[in-house]
């Protein structure tokens, strides 16, 4: 099986979030995710793209389709070179927010996907990677 090549999109404005949602949707369909799983991963991508824009000062997303044995997945990596997250445990706490949001972005999107990794360094930036596998 040949997976689609990785695509990188910028996250610099409102309309980029919509574009990312659309690409994630297309890839999730190609990976044959169920409608519910498509909706979950698109929603998680929307939350994380907005985080990148709001808290990371913008950045980019790299979307590809990894394989794992017979399963195909969709992977999205949200990368910013913003201020980083000083207290990760706090940031992942349900309902905690540093400002504008409802505090669901990180903790909520983590629940919507199969794999969630967060790499952050104060002053260097944050990378959040999510994967959702076909069943």
């Amino acid at each position: 099986m040949t997976a689609a090549a990785a695509i990188e999109l910028p996250i610099g404005a409102d309309e980029d979030i919509v574009r990312i949602r659309q690409l994630v949707r297309t890839r999730a369909q190609e990976a044959k995710l169920s409608l519910v799983d498509q909706t979950k991963v698109v929603t998680a991508a929307s939350e994380l793209a907005r985080n990148t824009l709001t808290y990371g000062g913008g950045g980019r997303v790299v979307i590809d389709m990894p394989t794992n044995g017979r399963r195909v997945g969709i992977r999205a990596r949200f990368i910013d070179e913003g201020p980083g997250i000083p207290d990760l445990d706090l940031a992942l706490t349900e309902g905690w927010t540093s400002g504008k949001g409802m505090g669901l972005g990180l903790s909520g999107s983590r629940r919507l996907v199969d794999e969630f990794t967060l790499d952050t360094e104060v002053g260097r930036g944050t990378t959040v990677t999510i994967v959702k596998w076909s069943r």
Binding site: L35, V36, Q38, K40, T43, M102, L104, G108, R111, L112
Partner: peptide, 11 residues
């Protein structure tokens, strides 16, 4: 699908 996702998101 939207309803299920909203609940899991915690909204």
């Amino acid at each position: 699908a939207v309803a299920i996702t909203l609940v899991e998101l915690g909204l």
